[in-house]
Structures are given as structure tokens and as C-alpha cells.
Design a protein around this nucleic acid. Structure first.
Length: 545
RNA sequence: GGGCUGGUAGCUCAGUCGGUCAGAGCUGCGGACUUUUAAUCCGUAGGUCCCGGGUUCGAGUCCCGGCCGGCCCA
């Protein structure tokens, strides 16, 4: 505790709690104990599960059935945080939560000794307690522990948020996640889901013979993606370093080295703006598979999504049902596979625009005013001014196709590619990107201006980026040189020339396909979360004060 | 970076046209109640109305600036 805290006037709620703690101390008890009673702890979830057969459809428990089913259980020892408390004369109900679930504690004169009932005076919402008692159901059918012994373990000196509304202030939710996790079941569920999702991703890859590796996060060169890096410095070597923006080039070196199926799941750092879809540090999965193509990886992507979602459904069935309904997309139908050029053409048709807009716009005097009157979409929802600005910066046909895709097609993916019943969007693979915007991908054999690459969009949001890897060291060296030119022209999101990577390629990269996916965005999609901050425990915020 | 929007008790929120507007519920405290489900009932305490200026007889309310958020766009 700092000097300031100690001398600050304490609000009445904290003072009342502090006094209760002091009263305990004066009785020779510790309000911050760690000596639990020696009996082993029963977990609340399993305790509930034990008598689940006594539960009816309305969630009420049958008294007699509970007594029957909990027969040999005897006295159970439980511990957790007090979430609700109702005094009722010489009886009381407490709701207790541990990491596995919640259970009501029922204290009353019939079963609870006077001395134990008196201890309720010390216990408040938010406190951590232990208790002993037998499982029973109340007249109203609420599963309860009929308490014979109770004890405060940890006094909470701060009050919990509103018990009904919880913590609504989003800023406080992000800054004081510990409170959010106590007060909001939904928030806690998202982070449990995240853990299951990450493990399911690992399991999918492990089961298919992929090796998990760890590569450096401190890089001497910028590579593997188009993004601005954070910089730092190593004192002993007096050397500038970049926090990694992608692990790609290291992982492909490992494929050269014979680790033909590798993956890394870890934190990346990009020195860019913050939004509902961007946090400066985020978690990415990359995997590389030798003797595979981007076609292989599309099949894998669908399998991976479905495997992860099925796992989530098994582990969190109740929450998963709610997320499933909240999701604006479905994984039940085949993902759409659309070459970028076709996506642009289709989007133009949907906006009732001429089929050559994306080429005509590059010339002088493009009739944008006339185009924007073609349809509601063209008028209100296509950002012509930024599209035009973007087109002006394009140095070649490839970049122009990409700009057309970005402004004409991508904003409408969610509505243009829907399930058979039209109720939900389907995920869309956009394929065959221009080589100019894909410096690490292999050119298509049938059209060298394009590359064997896809990105996956789930309800219009980019989740994955994958391609058949460029194994030709000379082509790769030329692409690196292009990046240097872009940098010289002022582009801040370019890669450095990585000579060692070229040397690695000269030893021979087997035909390989590689895949990257934002884990945070995957969690957002599966849990129907609106902001990346809802799936990152401690998102970056400006400091308080 | 731009547009819109928010900040009132520990928490959730109301506060009209600038004039008894410093309010409610929860939480806390005191009390009643032996099966509650946001328990109920009675009583009570709790405020830098984000910060700083300005306009005004008078500002939570209007204006300007700042701080910290949210949403959308870049």
C-alpha cells in the first residue's frame, strides 16, 4: 500500500469491511487465512453433477431424490466466493462460487449451531469462505449445502458491483478485469472458451503430426508481414531489435531443416492503431506443411474450424448454444471459395456497376458521380473517395485489383455470401491474390501475376491468411528488393531484405504451404464478441490519470 | 487522424426549458423475518456531478479547452 492510499480518506463501505476484519483479528482469527480445514475440498460443479438426476426441466431439484443420490456423500467441505447473501431471521442463504460452479449454502437453526450462525456477521458479499455440510434440496427445489460449519477465509475490503446489473462500465471492465471476472459470468465464460479454443487448435495440429516450436520474438529484421514494428534495444550487444510482427520466416527455415510440419502459437506485436479488431499485442497461430498447397490448407481450415467449434460445444454446451444463436455466420455449410477477380466482378454486378469500373477508375475522368447513382449500394456504401485515393497510389495492376477488392467487394462479403436459408453468412475464402501484395507467396503456374494464396473472411472479418510458399530464392530476392523500393517511396509497412532467409531457401524449401490465423479474432467469432478487448484479458489502454 | 457519443454515490442509473435537483435502486450500517431465488418490509449513512476556464443574479444542465472511454470511418 502506498503512502497516498494509507492517508486517503476511506469510503464508508471499505471502512465497514475493514472493521469487520479488525473484529476478527481481535478474536484471534485471521481475516486473510490460508489454513483450510484438513478435509479435502469438494468442487461445486461436480457436487451438483452428482445429483443431476434429481433435477427437473425447470432446474429445480427433487428433495427426496437428492437425499437418495447424495446418500453416501456425507459431509462435504467447500470453499469459494460469496456472490449473494440473504439473511432470513435465524436462517440464511449464501450463494458460493468456485472455479467449477456455484452452489447455495443454507444455514438455519435446525442444522447449524448458534456459534456458526453468529459467524454470518463477519461474512459479506465478495468474501471468500469455507463451509461444511450435507447436500440437500430446499422446499423450492434449490440444491443447497445444509451448513454445519462455516468460516471466513478472506475478507474482501472492496464491495462488488451491482449484483443485478454487474459491471457495465466498459472501461472499468477492461482496467479491472479481476472485478469483471467476478461480476460477469459472460466475461468469464469467454475467457474459459478462449482456453478451450487454444487447446483444441493445438490438439488438431498435434494429432496431425505438427510439431510446436518456439522461435525468437526479438528480431533483427522486420519480416513475415506488412506492419510497423515496435523497436527495442539490446544493451550488451548495443543493437536495435524489433518485436516480431510474424514468425513466418523462422518457421520456413525450420521446414528447410526438415521439420516438415511445424506450428507456433504466440504473441505478435504490431505498432499500429487500436480498434475493436486490433490490439498492439495479439496472438497468432502459424503453421507450415511441406508437400501441401494452399488448396490443402483450405480443406484443413474448414476442418480446423469445425473441430474447434465442436470441442467448444462439448466443453461449454450451455454457453455454446447462446453463442451459436448470436453468431451472424454459420460453419454448417461449405465455405465459399472465390477468386479475388471473381469477387470483384460479382460485387460490381451486385451494385449494378459496369464490369470495368476497377480498370476505368485508374484513368482520368472516371465517371464516379454517374457510377455512384447506379444503386443504393454504390451510392451510400461504397467509399468512392478513399477508393479513388487508394487507386492513385497503386503502382501496378495487382495493387489496383487489390484496391478494387478492398473497396468494392470486401465490405459486402457478409451479405453477398449467405447460407442456403439466407439467415446467416458463410465464411468466404478469397483466393488468388495479386503477386504485388503477396511478397512471400508462390506465383500461380497458370497466371504468374497472381499467387496461390487465400484469406478467410468470417462475416466480413479477416481471420486467416495462407498461401503456397515461395521457394524460389531468386524470385524471393526480387520480392525483397521490391519491398525495399516501397520503403524508399515512403511505405512504412514493408519487410527488410533477409539475406539469411534467402540462403536458407537456397538449401531448398520443399513444396510447402503456410497458414496464419489471429487467435483473438477466432475467439471473437466463436463467442460472438464485438470487440477484441472482450477476448484479451488485459487489453492495452492509456494509463489511468 | 476525422465524425458521432459518454463521464452524476462503491456499483447500476435518473436528473425536463439554466431556478428546493443532489435523486432512486443495489451495496453498507441498524432492525423484523426458520425454505429464499434481484427475497420482502422499516429505518439510516453515503457526492471533487471527470478536470480547468467562461457566460449568468444563478451551471450537473449552456460555451471553450483538457483528460479518460465507447461506436463508426481512415
Amino acid at each position: 500500500m502506498s503512502q497516498d492510499d494509507r492517508h486517503a480518506p476511506e469510503d464508508a463501505l471499505r471502512e465497514a469491511r475493514r472493521q469487520k476484519a479488525q473484529a476478527l483479528r481481535e478474536r484471534g482469527e485471521n481475516p486473510f487465512a490460508n489454513d483450510l480445514w484438513p478435509a479435502p475440498l469438494a468442487e461445486l460443479g461436480p457436487l451438483r453433477a452428482r445429483v443431476s438426476a434429481a433435477r427437473n426441466d425447470a432446474g429445480r431439484y427433487d428433495k427426496a431424490r437428492v437425499a437418495e443420490l447424495s446418500g453416501e456423500l456425507g459431509v462435504a467441505h467447500v470453499a469459494g466466493r460469496v456472490l449473494m447473501q440473504r439473511g432470513f431471521g435465524r436462517a440464511a442463504f449464501l450463494r458460493l462460487r468456485d472455479r467449477t460452479g456455484e452452489l447455495q449454502l443454507y444455514l438455519h437453526e435446525g442444522a447449524t449451531p448458534q456459534a456458526e450462525l453468529a459467524r454470518l456477521d463477519d461474512i459479506q458479499l465478495g468474501d471468500v469462505i469455507e463451509a461444511e455440510g450435507e447436500l440437500m434440496a430446499t422446499d423450492k427445489g434449490e440444491l443447497s449445502l445444509e451448513v454445519t460449519r462455516v468460516r471466513l477465509l478472506t475478507k474482501a475490503l472492496r464491495p462488488l458491483p451491482d449484483k443485478w446489473h454487474g459491471l457495465a462500465d466498459v472501461e472499468t471492465r477492461y482496467r479491472q478485469r479481476y472485478v469483471d471476472l467476478i461480476a460477469s459470468r459472460d466475461a468469464a465464460a469467454v475467457f474459459r472458451a478462449r482456453s478451450h479454443i487454444v487447446r483444441a487448435v493445438r490438439r488438431y495440429l498435434d494429432d496431425d503430426g505438427f510439431l510446436e516450436v518456439e522461435t525468437p520474438t526479438l528480431h533483427t529484421l522486420v519480416g513475415g508481414a506488412a506492419a510497423k514494428p515496435f523497436t527495442t534495444h539490446h544493451n550488451a550487444l548495443d543493437m536495435s531489435l524489433f518485436l516480431r510482427i510474424a514468425p513466418e520466416l523462422y518457421l520456413k527455415r525450420l521446414v528447410v531443416g526438415g521439420l516438415e510440419r511445424v506450428y507456433e502459437l504466440g504473441r505478435m506485436y504490431r505498432n499500429e492503431g487500436i480498434s475493436t479488431r486490433h490490439n498492439p499485442e495479439f496472438t497468432m497461430l502459424e503453421f507450415y506443411e511441406a508437400y501441401a498447397t494452399y488448396e490443402t490448407l483450405m480443406t484443413r481450415t474448414e476442418a480446423l474450424f469445425r473441430a474447434v467449434d465442436a470441442d467448444l460445444a462439448r466443453r461449454m454446451p450451455d454457453e455454446h448454444g447462446a453463442w451459436l444463436r448470436a453468431r451472424p455466420f454459420t460453419l454448417d455449410e461449405p465455405f465459399a471459395r472465390v477468386p479475388m477477380r471473381a469477387a470483384v466482378e460479382r460485387a460490381l454486378a451486385k451494385a449494378s456497376l459496369p464490369a470495368d469500373v476497377h480498370t476505368t477508375i485508374r484513368g482520368e475522368g472516371a465517371p464516379i458521380k454517374e457510377w455512384s447513382r447506379s444503386s443504393e449500394r454504390a451510392k451510400k456504401r461504397i467509399d468512392w473517395s478513399n477508393y479513388l485515393k487508394g487507386v492513385k497510389k497503386c503502382a501496378n495492376d495487382g495493387e489496383a485489383l487489390f484496391a478494387a477488392y478492398e473497396y468494392l467487394a470486401e465490405p459486402f462479403l457478409a451479405e453477398d455470401y449467405t447460407s442456403a436459408d439466407g439467415q446467416k453468412s458463410v465464411p468466404v475464402f478469397i483466393l488468388d491474390y495479386p503477386a504485388e501484395v503477396s511478397p512471400l507467396a508462390r506465383r500461380k503456374d497458370s497466371d504468374p501475376s497472381l499467387v496461390d494464396r487465400f484469406e478467410l473472411f468470417v462475416h466480413g472479418r479477416e481471420l486467416c491468411n495462407a498461401f503456397s510458399e515461395l521457394g524460389d530464392p531468386e524470385d524471393q530476392a526480387a520480392r525483397f528488393r521490391d519491398q525495399l523500393e516501397k520503403k524508399a517511396r515512403g511505405d512504412e509497412e514493408t519487410m527488410d531484405y533477409d539475406a539469411d532467409y534467402i540462403r536458407a531457401l537456397e538449401h531448398g524449401l520443399p513444396p510447402t504451404a503456410g497458414f496464419g490465423m489471429g487467435i483473438d479474432r477466432l475467439v471473437m467469432a466463436l463467442t460472438a464478441s464485438a470487440s477484441i478487448r472482450d477476448v484479451i484479458l488485459f487489453p492495452l489502454l492509456r494509463p489511468e490519470h
